[in-house]
């Protein structure tokens, strides 16, 4: 009885375990490769954080089929992506565009790196021209501590 119930559960829960299904694959390997590249950059909207290429969800499958449909109709990669963004918004793009506020995101790394290099360079120059400090004598506490460590 329990076993039967478990099997019934199993049937209810069954989900496709592969992302890209064999019946989705395009006959033309070059076009299929393009489709895979594009789907790797599109977010599955109902998943946690997966591209449609990795997701098992039905919606992801629909989008994968849509991408392939556009490619077969002769769209370029950019046109295909634009078609999907028009329908679903820029949220689907895993790679943020270089527009508006997102420019700040893309520029952040290089800008910070240049700033940091500049700061580091002035620091290093200052160190290079700094005077070597005179030896600072140990105070009494340190001297007795040193004795302790050396074990005298």
């Amino acid at each position: 009885m329990i076993r039967a119930a478990m099997i019934a559960m199993a049937l209810l829960l069954a989900t496709p375990a592969l992302a890209v299904q064999p019946d989705e694959v395009l006959p033309d390997p070059v076009m299929e490769e393009r489709a895979r590249d594009i789907s790797g950059g599109l977010r599955c909207l109902v998943c946690r954080n997966e591209s449609i290429d990795e997701s098992n969800a039905d919606l992801a499958r629909d989008l994968r089929l849509l991408v392939r449909e556009r490619l077969v109709l002769g769209d370029t990669d950019a046109e295909t992506v634009a078609f999907i963004v028009d329908r679903y918004g820029e949220y689907v793009l895993l790679r943020p565009t270089l527009t508006g506020s997102s420019i700040a995101l893309w520029a952040a790394g290089p800008v910070i790196m240049l700033l940091a290099l500049g700061l580091a360079f002035t620091y290093v120059r200052r160190r290079a021209h700094a005077e070597a400090p005179t030896e600072i004598a140990l105070n009494d506490a340190e001297r007795s501590r040193l004795k302790e460590i050396i074990g005298d």
């Binding site: 790797g40 950059g41 977010r43 954080n49 591209s51 918004g89 820029e90 949220y91 689907v92 793009l93 895993l94 790679r95 943020p96 508006g100 506020s101 997102s102 995101l105 952040a108 790394g109």
Partner: peptide, 26 residues
């Protein structure tokens, strides 16, 4: 870079009213 990429979707939504994703390609 990892930090700003990770929190950018949050910042973009809060300050620029843009819902976007930052994923592996970035």
């Amino acid at each position: 870079i990892v930090f700003i990429g990770t929190i950018w979707p949050l910042l973009a939504e809060m300050f620029f009213d843009r819902t976007l994703s930052v994923g592996p390609p970035f």
